[in-house]
Nucleic acid binder design. Structure first.
Lengths: 242, 242
DNA sequence: GGCGAAAAATGATCCAGATCAAGAACGGCG
DNA sequence: CGCCGTTCTTGATCTGGATCATTTTTCGCC
Protein backbone atom coordinates (compact mmCIF):
# COMPACT_ATOMS: atom_id res chain seq x y z
CA UNK A 1 0.00 0.00 0.00
CA UNK A 2 1.39 3.37 -1.00
CA UNK A 3 1.58 6.01 1.69
CA UNK A 4 -0.96 8.79 1.22
CA UNK A 5 -0.69 12.52 1.66
CA UNK A 6 -3.28 12.44 4.33
CA UNK A 7 -2.57 11.24 7.81
CA UNK A 8 -5.96 9.78 8.37
CA UNK A 9 -6.18 10.38 12.08
CA UNK A 10 -5.48 14.03 11.39
CA UNK A 11 -8.05 14.61 8.65
CA UNK A 12 -11.51 16.00 9.08
CA UNK A 13 -12.84 14.03 6.19
CA UNK A 14 -12.30 11.24 8.61
CA UNK A 15 -12.79 13.06 11.89
CA UNK A 16 -16.12 14.37 10.68
CA UNK A 17 -16.93 10.79 9.95
CA UNK A 18 -18.04 11.64 6.50
CA UNK A 19 -15.96 8.82 5.26
CA UNK A 20 -16.85 6.58 8.14
CA UNK A 21 -17.81 3.91 5.68
CA UNK A 22 -14.33 3.78 4.22
CA UNK A 23 -11.70 1.73 5.95
CA UNK A 24 -8.47 3.58 6.55
CA UNK A 25 -6.70 1.48 3.96
CA UNK A 26 -9.26 2.30 1.31
CA UNK A 27 -8.68 6.01 1.76
CA UNK A 28 -4.95 5.66 1.86
CA UNK A 29 -4.69 3.34 -1.07
CA UNK A 30 -5.75 6.05 -3.45
CA UNK A 31 -2.86 8.49 -3.67
CA UNK A 32 -4.12 12.01 -4.16
CA UNK A 33 -7.67 11.16 -3.20
CA UNK A 34 -7.53 13.71 -0.46
CA UNK A 35 -5.98 17.06 -1.22
CA UNK A 36 -5.03 19.44 1.51
CA UNK A 37 -5.05 23.15 1.01
CA UNK A 38 -4.25 26.24 3.02
CA UNK A 39 -5.86 29.61 2.28
CA UNK A 40 -5.09 33.07 3.56
CA UNK A 41 -7.88 35.42 4.66
CA UNK A 42 -9.56 36.94 1.62
CA UNK A 43 -8.63 34.10 -0.70
CA UNK A 44 -11.35 32.14 -2.44
CA UNK A 45 -11.87 28.42 -2.19
CA UNK A 46 -14.12 28.63 -5.21
CA UNK A 47 -16.01 31.22 -7.20
CA UNK A 48 -19.67 31.59 -8.07
CA UNK A 49 -20.02 30.38 -11.65
CA UNK A 50 -16.68 28.59 -11.61
CA UNK A 51 -16.41 24.90 -12.52
CA UNK A 52 -17.04 22.64 -9.57
CA UNK A 53 -14.22 20.17 -9.64
CA UNK A 54 -13.84 19.58 -5.92
CA UNK A 55 -15.80 19.22 -2.77
CA UNK A 56 -14.26 20.41 0.48
CA UNK A 57 -14.33 19.69 4.14
CA UNK A 58 -13.37 22.64 6.26
CA UNK A 59 -10.71 21.59 8.71
CA UNK A 60 -10.05 24.91 10.42
CA UNK A 61 -11.03 28.54 10.09
CA UNK A 62 -14.09 30.42 8.92
CA UNK A 63 -15.39 30.71 5.38
CA UNK A 64 -17.94 33.14 3.97
CA UNK A 65 -20.42 31.66 1.50
CA UNK A 66 -22.00 34.32 -0.68
CA UNK A 67 -23.77 34.82 -3.97
CA UNK A 68 -24.03 38.00 -5.98
CA UNK A 69 -26.59 39.46 -8.33
CA UNK A 70 -25.31 40.65 -11.72
CA UNK A 71 -25.47 44.26 -10.52
CA UNK A 72 -23.07 43.52 -7.69
CA UNK A 73 -25.39 43.26 -4.71
CA UNK A 74 -24.13 40.43 -2.56
CA UNK A 75 -25.96 38.10 -0.20
CA UNK A 76 -24.13 36.09 2.43
CA UNK A 77 -25.74 32.66 2.42
CA UNK A 78 -23.96 31.34 5.44
CA UNK A 79 -20.70 30.87 7.29
CA UNK A 80 -18.73 27.68 7.06
CA UNK A 81 -16.99 26.45 10.17
CA UNK A 82 -14.79 23.55 11.13
CA UNK A 83 -16.39 20.31 10.00
CA UNK A 84 -18.63 21.81 7.32
CA UNK A 85 -18.99 20.32 3.90
CA UNK A 86 -18.44 22.99 1.28
CA UNK A 87 -19.40 23.04 -2.36
CA UNK A 88 -21.39 19.90 -2.25
CA UNK A 89 -23.77 21.26 -4.89
CA UNK A 90 -20.91 20.45 -7.20
CA UNK A 91 -22.01 16.89 -6.87
CA UNK A 92 -25.02 17.39 -9.11
CA UNK A 93 -24.02 20.59 -10.92
CA UNK A 94 -21.22 21.70 -13.16
CA UNK A 95 -20.70 25.13 -11.63
CA UNK A 96 -20.80 26.53 -8.13
CA UNK A 97 -23.90 28.63 -7.50
CA UNK A 98 -22.03 30.76 -4.94
CA UNK A 99 -18.51 31.50 -3.84
CA UNK A 100 -16.53 30.61 -0.74
CA UNK A 101 -14.02 33.05 0.67
CA UNK A 102 -11.72 32.56 3.63
CA UNK A 103 -12.39 34.96 6.51
CA UNK A 104 -9.50 33.68 8.59
CA UNK A 105 -6.57 31.45 7.70
CA UNK A 106 -8.32 28.34 6.48
CA UNK A 107 -7.41 24.71 6.23
CA UNK A 108 -9.45 22.45 3.94
CA UNK A 109 -9.36 18.92 2.67
CA UNK A 110 -10.67 18.40 -0.82
CA UNK A 111 -11.92 15.44 -2.79
CA UNK A 112 -12.28 15.50 -6.54
CA UNK A 113 -15.88 15.44 -7.65
CA UNK A 114 -15.35 12.34 -9.72
CA UNK A 115 -13.84 10.57 -6.73
CA UNK A 116 -16.70 11.65 -4.54
CA UNK A 117 -19.20 10.19 -6.96
CA UNK A 118 -17.33 6.92 -6.81
CA UNK A 119 -17.12 6.99 -3.03
CA UNK A 120 -20.83 7.69 -2.73
CA UNK A 121 -21.96 4.97 -5.09
CA UNK A 122 -19.73 2.45 -3.38
CA UNK A 123 -20.33 3.43 0.23
CA UNK A 124 -23.96 3.66 1.34
CA UNK A 125 -22.97 4.65 4.86
CA UNK A 126 -21.09 7.68 3.58
CA UNK A 127 -24.04 8.67 1.42
CA UNK A 128 -26.32 8.46 4.41
CA UNK A 129 -23.98 10.70 6.38
CA UNK A 130 -23.90 13.22 3.56
CA UNK A 131 -27.68 13.10 3.48
CA UNK A 132 -27.81 14.11 7.12
CA UNK A 133 -25.37 16.93 6.52
CA UNK A 134 -27.45 18.27 3.63
CA UNK A 135 -30.54 18.02 5.74
CA UNK A 136 -28.90 20.11 8.43
CA UNK A 137 -27.87 22.66 5.84
CA UNK A 138 -31.42 22.85 4.56
CA UNK A 139 -32.50 23.51 8.13
CA UNK A 140 -30.13 26.44 8.37
CA UNK A 141 -31.33 27.86 5.07
CA UNK A 142 -34.90 27.74 6.31
CA UNK A 143 -33.87 29.56 9.49
CA UNK A 144 -32.30 32.32 7.41
CA UNK A 145 -35.44 32.53 5.27
CA UNK A 146 -37.49 33.04 8.42
CA UNK A 147 -35.15 35.82 9.50
CA UNK A 148 -35.23 37.59 6.18
CA UNK A 149 -38.90 37.05 5.52
CA UNK A 150 -40.50 38.10 8.73
CA UNK A 151 -38.21 39.41 11.38
CA UNK A 152 -37.45 43.06 12.04
CA UNK A 153 -33.89 44.38 12.14
CA UNK A 154 -33.46 44.03 15.92
CA UNK A 155 -34.96 40.56 15.80
CA UNK A 156 -32.61 39.49 13.04
CA UNK A 157 -29.54 40.67 14.87
CA UNK A 158 -30.66 38.98 18.07
CA UNK A 159 -31.41 35.79 16.18
CA UNK A 160 -28.01 35.98 14.54
CA UNK A 161 -26.20 36.46 17.83
CA UNK A 162 -28.01 33.47 19.32
CA UNK A 163 -26.97 31.40 16.35
CA UNK A 164 -23.36 31.91 17.39
CA UNK A 165 -23.89 29.67 20.38
CA UNK A 166 -22.43 26.21 20.01
CA UNK A 167 -24.98 23.36 20.34
CA UNK A 168 -23.76 22.24 23.76
CA UNK A 169 -24.09 25.66 25.36
CA UNK A 170 -21.54 26.75 27.85
CA UNK A 171 -22.68 30.17 26.89
CA UNK A 172 -21.12 32.28 29.57
CA UNK A 173 -17.89 32.52 27.62
CA UNK A 174 -16.94 34.89 24.89
CA UNK A 175 -17.91 33.67 21.47
CA UNK A 176 -15.81 34.27 18.36
CA UNK A 177 -17.40 36.66 15.87
CA UNK A 178 -15.43 36.28 12.65
CA UNK A 179 -17.71 38.63 10.68
CA UNK A 180 -17.46 42.38 10.23
CA UNK A 181 -20.58 44.53 10.67
CA UNK A 182 -20.69 44.75 6.91
CA UNK A 183 -20.85 40.99 6.52
CA UNK A 184 -23.44 40.49 9.25
CA UNK A 185 -25.51 43.09 7.43
CA UNK A 186 -25.08 41.31 4.10
CA UNK A 187 -26.21 38.10 5.72
CA UNK A 188 -29.28 39.60 7.39
CA UNK A 189 -30.41 41.74 4.49
CA UNK A 190 -29.63 44.93 6.41
CA UNK A 191 -27.15 47.79 6.22
CA UNK A 192 -23.99 47.97 8.20
CA UNK A 193 -25.18 51.13 9.99
CA UNK A 194 -28.36 49.39 11.09
CA UNK A 195 -26.44 46.41 12.47
CA UNK A 196 -24.13 48.78 14.29
CA UNK A 197 -27.03 50.68 15.82
CA UNK A 198 -28.81 47.53 16.98
CA UNK A 199 -25.63 46.14 18.51
CA UNK A 200 -24.99 49.47 20.20
CA UNK A 201 -28.49 49.28 21.67
CA UNK A 202 -27.95 45.78 23.01
CA UNK A 203 -24.65 46.86 24.49
CA UNK A 204 -26.27 49.88 26.13
CA UNK A 205 -28.94 47.62 27.63
CA UNK A 206 -26.29 45.25 28.98
CA UNK A 207 -27.63 42.34 26.96
CA UNK A 208 -24.30 41.70 25.30
CA UNK A 209 -20.74 42.89 25.52
CA UNK A 210 -18.42 43.16 22.50
CA UNK A 211 -14.68 43.15 22.27
CA UNK A 212 -12.94 43.02 18.91
CA UNK A 213 -13.83 39.80 17.15
CA UNK A 214 -15.68 38.46 20.21
CA UNK A 215 -19.13 38.74 21.76
CA UNK A 216 -20.30 37.84 25.20
CA UNK A 217 -23.96 37.20 25.87
CA UNK A 218 -24.88 38.68 29.24
CA UNK A 219 -28.65 38.31 29.23
CA UNK A 220 -29.61 35.18 27.38
CA UNK A 221 -33.34 35.38 28.13
CA UNK A 222 -33.66 38.96 26.98
CA UNK A 223 -31.78 38.27 23.78
CA UNK A 224 -34.01 35.32 23.04
CA UNK A 225 -37.23 37.22 23.59
CA UNK A 226 -35.82 40.08 21.53
CA UNK A 227 -35.32 37.60 18.69
CA UNK A 228 -38.94 36.50 18.72
CA UNK A 229 -38.30 32.88 19.61
CA UNK A 230 -40.66 30.98 21.83
CA UNK A 231 -39.39 30.87 25.41
CA UNK A 232 -38.28 27.26 25.22
CA UNK A 233 -36.85 27.33 21.75
CA UNK A 234 -33.12 27.60 21.31
CA UNK A 235 -32.22 28.47 17.75
CA UNK A 236 -29.97 26.13 15.92
CA UNK A 237 -26.44 27.27 15.29
CA UNK A 238 -26.16 29.04 11.99
CA UNK A 239 -22.55 27.91 11.96
CA UNK A 240 -23.78 24.40 11.78
CA UNK A 241 -22.03 21.30 12.84
CA UNK A 242 -21.54 18.97 9.93
CA UNK B 1 -46.66 -12.40 -3.36
CA UNK B 2 -49.41 -10.41 -1.74
CA UNK B 3 -51.00 -7.73 -3.83
CA UNK B 4 -50.15 -4.26 -2.62
CA UNK B 5 -52.28 -1.15 -2.29
CA UNK B 6 -50.13 0.63 -4.75
CA UNK B 7 -50.33 -0.02 -8.46
CA UNK B 8 -46.66 0.57 -9.08
CA UNK B 9 -46.94 2.01 -12.56
CA UNK B 10 -49.37 4.52 -11.14
CA UNK B 11 -47.31 5.71 -8.20
CA UNK B 12 -45.02 8.69 -8.11
CA UNK B 13 -42.75 7.11 -5.59
CA UNK B 14 -41.91 4.96 -8.58
CA UNK B 15 -42.58 7.43 -11.37
CA UNK B 16 -40.30 9.96 -9.73
CA UNK B 17 -37.81 7.16 -9.71
CA UNK B 18 -37.10 7.77 -6.10
CA UNK B 19 -37.42 4.11 -5.56
CA UNK B 20 -35.66 3.27 -8.77
CA UNK B 21 -33.35 1.03 -6.86
CA UNK B 22 -36.18 -1.12 -5.65
CA UNK B 23 -37.53 -3.81 -7.91
CA UNK B 24 -41.27 -3.73 -8.32
CA UNK B 25 -41.63 -6.92 -6.35
CA UNK B 26 -39.69 -5.52 -3.42
CA UNK B 27 -42.04 -2.59 -3.12
CA UNK B 28 -45.12 -4.70 -3.54
CA UNK B 29 -44.06 -7.44 -1.21
CA UNK B 30 -44.35 -5.13 1.77
CA UNK B 31 -48.07 -4.59 2.29
CA UNK B 32 -48.73 -1.15 3.62
CA UNK B 33 -45.28 0.11 2.75
CA UNK B 34 -46.82 2.72 0.56
CA UNK B 35 -49.81 4.59 1.89
CA UNK B 36 -52.01 6.64 -0.37
CA UNK B 37 -53.84 9.66 0.87
CA UNK B 38 -56.19 12.23 -0.53
CA UNK B 39 -56.48 15.71 0.96
CA UNK B 40 -58.99 18.45 0.35
CA UNK B 41 -57.85 22.08 -0.06
CA UNK B 42 -57.02 23.58 3.30
CA UNK B 43 -56.24 20.26 4.95
CA UNK B 44 -52.82 19.65 6.40
CA UNK B 45 -50.48 16.85 5.42
CA UNK B 46 -48.50 17.55 8.56
CA UNK B 47 -48.09 20.28 11.14
CA UNK B 48 -45.10 22.27 12.29
CA UNK B 49 -44.00 20.73 15.57
CA UNK B 50 -45.96 17.53 14.98
CA UNK B 51 -44.26 14.12 15.11
CA UNK B 52 -42.70 13.16 11.79
CA UNK B 53 -43.87 9.65 11.21
CA UNK B 54 -44.09 9.72 7.43
CA UNK B 55 -42.39 11.06 4.39
CA UNK B 56 -44.51 11.93 1.37
CA UNK B 57 -44.28 12.10 -2.37
CA UNK B 58 -46.72 14.52 -3.91
CA UNK B 59 -48.59 12.79 -6.68
CA UNK B 60 -50.96 15.57 -7.72
CA UNK B 61 -51.95 19.05 -6.62
CA UNK B 62 -50.21 21.93 -4.89
CA UNK B 63 -49.05 22.10 -1.30
CA UNK B 64 -48.01 25.14 0.71
CA UNK B 65 -45.00 24.68 2.97
CA UNK B 66 -44.88 27.24 5.72
CA UNK B 67 -43.43 27.89 9.14
CA UNK B 68 -44.73 30.27 11.77
CA UNK B 69 -43.13 32.30 14.52
CA UNK B 70 -44.65 31.94 18.01
CA UNK B 71 -46.44 35.29 17.58
CA UNK B 72 -48.29 34.02 14.52
CA UNK B 73 -46.33 35.59 11.70
CA UNK B 74 -46.07 33.03 8.93
CA UNK B 75 -43.44 32.51 6.26
CA UNK B 76 -44.15 30.45 3.17
CA UNK B 77 -41.01 28.42 2.57
CA UNK B 78 -42.03 27.01 -0.76
CA UNK B 79 -44.69 25.34 -2.83
CA UNK B 80 -44.74 21.62 -3.37
CA UNK B 81 -45.78 20.35 -6.76
CA UNK B 82 -46.25 16.99 -8.41
CA UNK B 83 -43.15 14.89 -7.89
CA UNK B 84 -41.84 16.72 -4.83
CA UNK B 85 -40.59 14.97 -1.77
CA UNK B 86 -42.28 16.38 1.34
CA UNK B 87 -41.30 16.16 4.95
CA UNK B 88 -37.97 14.58 4.34
CA UNK B 89 -36.49 16.39 7.34
CA UNK B 90 -38.41 13.80 9.28
CA UNK B 91 -35.67 11.43 8.29
CA UNK B 92 -33.23 12.95 10.75
CA UNK B 93 -35.62 14.75 13.09
CA UNK B 94 -38.46 13.79 15.36
CA UNK B 95 -40.75 16.69 14.53
CA UNK B 96 -41.55 18.63 11.38
CA UNK B 97 -39.98 22.08 11.37
CA UNK B 98 -42.80 23.42 9.18
CA UNK B 99 -46.28 22.47 8.05
CA UNK B 100 -47.68 21.35 4.72
CA UNK B 101 -51.17 22.41 3.70
CA UNK B 102 -53.06 21.43 0.56
CA UNK B 103 -53.84 24.37 -1.72
CA UNK B 104 -55.79 22.25 -4.17
CA UNK B 105 -57.12 18.71 -3.94
CA UNK B 106 -53.96 16.75 -3.27
CA UNK B 107 -52.87 13.20 -3.79
CA UNK B 108 -49.86 11.90 -1.89
CA UNK B 109 -48.06 8.64 -1.37
CA UNK B 110 -46.48 8.15 2.01
CA UNK B 111 -43.80 5.91 3.43
CA UNK B 112 -43.30 5.41 7.12
CA UNK B 113 -40.14 6.96 8.42
CA UNK B 114 -38.91 3.68 9.79
CA UNK B 115 -39.48 2.01 6.42
CA UNK B 116 -37.66 4.83 4.68
CA UNK B 117 -34.66 4.38 6.92
CA UNK B 118 -34.60 0.72 6.01
CA UNK B 119 -35.02 1.44 2.32
CA UNK B 120 -32.19 3.97 2.37
CA UNK B 121 -29.73 1.80 4.21
CA UNK B 122 -30.45 -1.10 1.92
CA UNK B 123 -30.61 0.74 -1.41
CA UNK B 124 -27.69 3.02 -2.22
CA UNK B 125 -29.22 4.05 -5.54
CA UNK B 126 -32.31 5.36 -3.81
CA UNK B 127 -30.16 7.25 -1.34
CA UNK B 128 -28.26 8.86 -4.18
CA UNK B 129 -31.53 9.92 -5.79
CA UNK B 130 -32.74 11.42 -2.54
CA UNK B 131 -29.43 13.25 -2.27
CA UNK B 132 -30.03 14.87 -5.62
CA UNK B 133 -33.53 15.87 -4.61
CA UNK B 134 -32.28 17.47 -1.40
CA UNK B 135 -29.61 19.27 -3.35
CA UNK B 136 -32.25 20.73 -5.65
CA UNK B 137 -34.28 21.81 -2.66
CA UNK B 138 -31.25 23.53 -1.19
CA UNK B 139 -30.86 25.35 -4.48
CA UNK B 140 -34.40 26.64 -4.25
CA UNK B 141 -33.92 27.78 -0.67
CA UNK B 142 -30.88 29.76 -1.71
CA UNK B 143 -32.86 31.41 -4.51
CA UNK B 144 -35.48 32.49 -2.01
CA UNK B 145 -32.78 33.82 0.30
CA UNK B 146 -31.47 35.95 -2.54
CA UNK B 147 -34.96 37.30 -3.16
CA UNK B 148 -35.61 38.12 0.46
CA UNK B 149 -32.14 39.42 1.20
CA UNK B 150 -31.49 41.77 -1.62
CA UNK B 151 -34.30 42.25 -4.06
CA UNK B 152 -36.85 45.05 -3.97
CA UNK B 153 -40.58 44.33 -4.01
CA UNK B 154 -40.97 44.64 -7.81
CA UNK B 155 -37.90 42.47 -8.31
CA UNK B 156 -39.21 39.80 -5.99
CA UNK B 157 -42.54 39.61 -7.72
CA UNK B 158 -40.90 39.44 -11.15
CA UNK B 159 -38.51 36.77 -9.91
CA UNK B 160 -41.43 34.85 -8.47
CA UNK B 161 -43.41 35.01 -11.71
CA UNK B 162 -40.41 33.75 -13.66
CA UNK B 163 -40.08 30.86 -11.25
CA UNK B 164 -43.48 29.66 -12.36
CA UNK B 165 -42.05 28.69 -15.73
CA UNK B 166 -41.54 24.97 -16.15
CA UNK B 167 -37.93 23.96 -16.89
CA UNK B 168 -38.60 23.08 -20.52
CA UNK B 169 -40.14 26.42 -21.34
CA UNK B 170 -42.99 26.60 -23.77
CA UNK B 171 -43.69 29.82 -22.03
CA UNK B 172 -46.23 31.42 -24.31
CA UNK B 173 -49.03 29.55 -22.58
CA UNK B 174 -50.92 30.45 -19.48
CA UNK B 175 -49.28 29.22 -16.31
CA UNK B 176 -51.21 27.97 -13.29
CA UNK B 177 -50.94 30.27 -10.28
CA UNK B 178 -52.26 28.28 -7.32
CA UNK B 179 -51.40 31.00 -4.80
CA UNK B 180 -53.52 33.89 -3.61
CA UNK B 181 -51.95 37.36 -3.38
CA UNK B 182 -51.78 36.82 0.34
CA UNK B 183 -49.69 33.68 -0.06
CA UNK B 184 -47.37 35.16 -2.65
CA UNK B 185 -46.84 38.02 -0.22
CA UNK B 186 -46.10 35.61 2.64
CA UNK B 187 -43.56 33.85 0.48
CA UNK B 188 -41.81 37.02 -0.66
CA UNK B 189 -41.79 38.79 2.67
CA UNK B 190 -44.20 41.44 1.42
CA UNK B 191 -47.80 42.50 2.04
CA UNK B 192 -50.69 41.44 -0.06
CA UNK B 193 -51.39 45.05 -1.08
CA UNK B 194 -47.84 45.48 -2.31
CA UNK B 195 -48.02 42.32 -4.40
CA UNK B 196 -51.31 43.48 -5.82
CA UNK B 197 -49.88 46.87 -6.72
CA UNK B 198 -46.81 45.41 -8.40
CA UNK B 199 -48.91 42.96 -10.39
CA UNK B 200 -51.26 45.76 -11.38
CA UNK B 201 -48.24 47.70 -12.64
CA UNK B 202 -46.98 44.79 -14.70
CA UNK B 203 -50.42 44.30 -16.14
CA UNK B 204 -50.68 47.98 -17.00
CA UNK B 205 -47.34 47.79 -18.77
CA UNK B 206 -48.46 44.75 -20.74
CA UNK B 207 -45.70 42.57 -19.29
CA UNK B 208 -48.13 39.98 -18.01
CA UNK B 209 -51.81 39.19 -18.19
CA UNK B 210 -53.75 37.60 -15.33
CA UNK B 211 -56.93 35.62 -15.35
CA UNK B 212 -58.21 33.85 -12.26
CA UNK B 213 -55.68 31.31 -11.10
CA UNK B 214 -53.57 31.78 -14.24
CA UNK B 215 -50.85 34.13 -15.47
CA UNK B 216 -49.56 34.69 -18.95
CA UNK B 217 -46.13 36.19 -19.52
CA UNK B 218 -46.29 38.58 -22.47
CA UNK B 219 -42.86 40.19 -22.30
CA UNK B 220 -40.34 37.69 -21.08
CA UNK B 221 -37.29 39.92 -21.53
CA UNK B 222 -38.79 42.82 -19.64
CA UNK B 223 -39.89 40.62 -16.79
CA UNK B 224 -36.43 39.14 -16.53
CA UNK B 225 -34.67 42.50 -16.47
CA UNK B 226 -37.22 43.72 -13.95
CA UNK B 227 -36.25 40.81 -11.74
CA UNK B 228 -32.58 41.73 -11.76
CA UNK B 229 -31.34 38.58 -13.42
CA UNK B 230 -28.45 38.63 -15.82
CA UNK B 231 -29.67 38.64 -19.44
CA UNK B 232 -28.73 35.03 -20.03
CA UNK B 233 -29.85 33.65 -16.71
CA UNK B 234 -33.16 31.87 -16.48
CA UNK B 235 -34.18 31.38 -12.88
CA UNK B 236 -34.80 27.91 -11.69
CA UNK B 237 -38.36 26.92 -11.08
CA UNK B 238 -39.35 27.57 -7.53
CA UNK B 239 -41.86 24.79 -7.94
CA UNK B 240 -39.00 22.41 -8.36
CA UNK B 241 -39.01 19.16 -10.13
CA UNK B 242 -38.04 16.39 -7.79
C1' DG C 1 -79.09 35.36 -13.29
C1' DG C 2 -78.55 37.30 -8.59
C1' DC C 3 -76.68 37.24 -3.87
C1' DG C 4 -73.14 37.04 -0.30
C1' DA C 5 -68.44 36.26 0.95
C1' DA C 6 -63.81 36.15 -0.25
C1' DA C 7 -60.17 38.14 -2.97
C1' DA C 8 -58.17 41.86 -5.39
C1' DA C 9 -57.42 46.60 -6.39
C1' DT C 10 -56.72 51.30 -5.14
C1' DG C 11 -56.03 55.38 -2.23
C1' DA C 12 -53.99 57.99 1.85
C1' DT C 13 -50.86 58.06 5.47
C1' DC C 14 -46.97 56.46 8.30
C1' DC C 15 -42.65 54.50 9.85
C1' DA C 16 -38.56 51.15 9.95
C1' DG C 17 -34.71 51.05 7.93
C1' DA C 18 -31.97 53.01 3.95
C1' DT C 19 -29.13 56.61 2.64
C1' DC C 20 -25.98 60.37 3.14
C1' DA C 21 -22.56 62.48 5.96
C1' DA C 22 -19.26 63.02 9.66
C1' DG C 23 -16.54 61.63 13.45
C1' DA C 24 -14.27 58.10 16.67
C1' DA C 25 -11.79 54.00 17.60
C1' DC C 26 -9.00 50.53 16.20
C1' DG C 27 -5.07 47.90 14.35
C1' DG C 28 -1.20 47.22 11.63
C1' DC C 29 3.33 48.86 10.59
C1' DG C 30 7.50 51.84 9.96
C1' DC D 1 5.20 55.60 19.56
C1' DG D 2 2.69 58.02 15.81
C1' DC D 3 0.63 57.72 11.36
C1' DC D 4 -2.99 55.99 8.21
C1' DG D 5 -6.38 53.12 6.33
C1' DT D 6 -10.12 50.36 7.67
C1' DT D 7 -13.99 49.44 10.66
C1' DC D 8 -17.27 51.09 13.69
C1' DT D 9 -20.32 54.49 15.55
C1' DT D 10 -23.54 58.23 15.59
C1' DG D 11 -26.54 61.79 13.56
C1' DA D 12 -29.96 63.85 10.13
C1' DT D 13 -32.89 63.03 6.46
C1' DC D 14 -35.44 60.41 2.99
C1' DT D 15 -38.29 56.66 1.05
C1' DG D 16 -40.06 51.94 -0.12
C1' DG D 17 -43.15 49.37 1.55
C1' DA D 18 -46.34 48.75 5.61
C1' DT D 19 -50.58 49.99 7.42
C1' DC D 20 -55.26 51.40 7.52
C1' DA D 21 -59.40 52.27 4.96
C1' DT D 22 -62.51 51.70 1.19
C1' DT D 23 -64.15 50.13 -3.23
C1' DT D 24 -64.44 46.83 -6.97
C1' DT D 25 -64.11 42.32 -8.84
C1' DT D 26 -64.50 37.48 -8.69
C1' DC D 27 -66.65 33.31 -7.63
C1' DG D 28 -69.33 29.72 -5.36
C1' DC D 29 -73.94 28.73 -4.74
C1' DC D 30 -79.02 28.89 -4.79
Amino acid sequence: MTPCECAVADCLLCEARLLSGLAEQQVCSVPGLILRELRAPGEFLFHQGGPSRHLYVLKAGYVKLAAALPDGREQVLGIGVEGNLLGFEGFSQEVFPYSAQALTPVHVCGVRRTDMTRILTGNPKVTLDVLRVLNAELERSKALIMDLGLRTAPERVASFLLSLLPPGRTWERELPLPLKRREIAEMLGLREETVSRVIAGLRRERVIRTRQGKVQILDFARLRSQAGFSPAEVPESRFATA
